[in-house]
Write a protein that binds this DNA or RNA. Sequence first.
DNA 1: ATCATATATTTACAGATGTCTATACGAAGA
DNA 2: TCTTCGTATAGACATCTGTAAATATATGAT
Lengths: 123, 123
Amino acid sequence: MTESSPSCSCATAPEDRLPDSTIENRVEQLKALASPVRLQMVDLIYYGGGEVCVCELQENFDLSQPTISHHLKVLREAGLIQSRQEGTFVYHRVDTSAFTDLSALMDRLSTIREADEAARAVA
Amino acid sequence: MTESSPSCSCATAPEDRLPDSTIENRVEQLKALASPVRLQMVDLIYYGGGEVCVCELQENFDLSQPTISHHLKVLREAGLIQSRQEGTFVYHRVDTSAFTDLSALMDRLSTIREADEAARAVA
DNA sequence: ATCATATATTTACAGATGTCTATACGAAGA
DNA sequence: TCTTCGTATAGACATCTGTAAATATATGAT
């Protein structure tokens, strides 16, 4: 065996990197979701009938109205929800395409790398 | 039409809520991923041969070694990567099952709700 | 026009986060 | 054992984030 070298055995350069613009976009989406309040909000909007207004959210979260508005803004700016005004009410719904993108990202990292298992066995 | 009521038209209570423990777990995973540095790290670990040591990461990020170590700790504590020590080197690899869980969460929100479309059409 | 109500914005502040420097730990070699 | 090298931890500091109070905006009703 040739284990005399004091350097690590990492492979050198990855082939299939994500483009920076994708990283940026996904990180913004992930940041928006990485909050118990906002994750529950999105889930509530989706499973609470598809369209939900701020007043409905106020009943489900022990938060002030401005705080709820703030979280909705974060979700909207990340492209996770869309908002529609009807009279004085504003209804929010989940932008499912954003979650399709996120699902694809997670799938990209959710498969055991058979190639590496094989490579290590050979080496 | 009976639009005289000054209340919003939100559906009342959602049926299919995520349990709190799931929310907590997913939020920790999402927080760990919601950083350009850490998202790229995970991607680099996965596509950089499956197993990567800190030294390799240092070459790809313009960050101090302690900072890299810190980010790896966050990823490890969130269950997104696993670490294996071999001599002085520590090799990190992606825990694909965590990303399977995250993918399932995203899938949960990535389908257009046909039921609601239909319901709105009827109403 | 005035008023009430639903939602948004501004401001302020406490707590979390990302980064570095300095230091410590631990394994391998001299 | 002493040194070196890879990695981890501790401390410090600037920035970002979540929240509420106060205020603003805008729509519908009277």
